[in-house]
Design a protein around this nucleic acid. Structure first.
Length: 112
DNA sequence: ACTTTGACTTGCA
DNA sequence: ATGCAAGCCAAAG
């Protein structure tokens, strides 16, 4: 495994997000053991390979407020929201209804 | 090799 | 409730 496997873990995890669901950077980081380093998740998504970019539903990754913080990094700032809406995600103003669509990654090997 | 910034989060004032 | 600062790890300059 390469040292940058952290990126691969992020990609794999985001790819696991069910259709019509969203997750937060904090939860992803926590699932990877970097519970306090949500920035790395964002950085990893920024470094998503072009081939993976189409596979990884980065539009399902939002900040802890359910806000589409990364929308500006997309091809267009609106594509992110439109994609989520197309998947049946309920929006509350500019934020996703985390109460309904917040998905938490399955932590198989959880540690204290 | 050191400094700055980054798709974030939490805490204190 | 709103605003500012610190913490976090990694990559680019």
């Amino acid at each position: 495994m390469s040292k940058s496997d952290f990126y691969h873990q992020v990609y794999a995890l985001v790819r696991r997000v069910p259709h019509g669901m969203v997750t937060t950077y904090g939860h992803i980081a926590a699932a990877l053991g970097l519970r306090s380093s949500a920035r790395m998740v964002g950085w990893a998504l920024n470094a998503i390979p072009v081939d993976q970019r189409l596979e990884i539903p980065a539009h399902r990754v939002v900040n802890r407020l359910g806000e589409l913080s990364g929308k500006m990094h997309f091809e267009t700032p609106h594509v992110m929201r439109e994609r989520l809406e197309a998947e049946g995600v309920a929006f509350n103003g500019d934020c996703v209804d985390l109460k309904r669509h917040l998905w938490v990654p399955d932590v198989t090997s959880e540690e204290s």
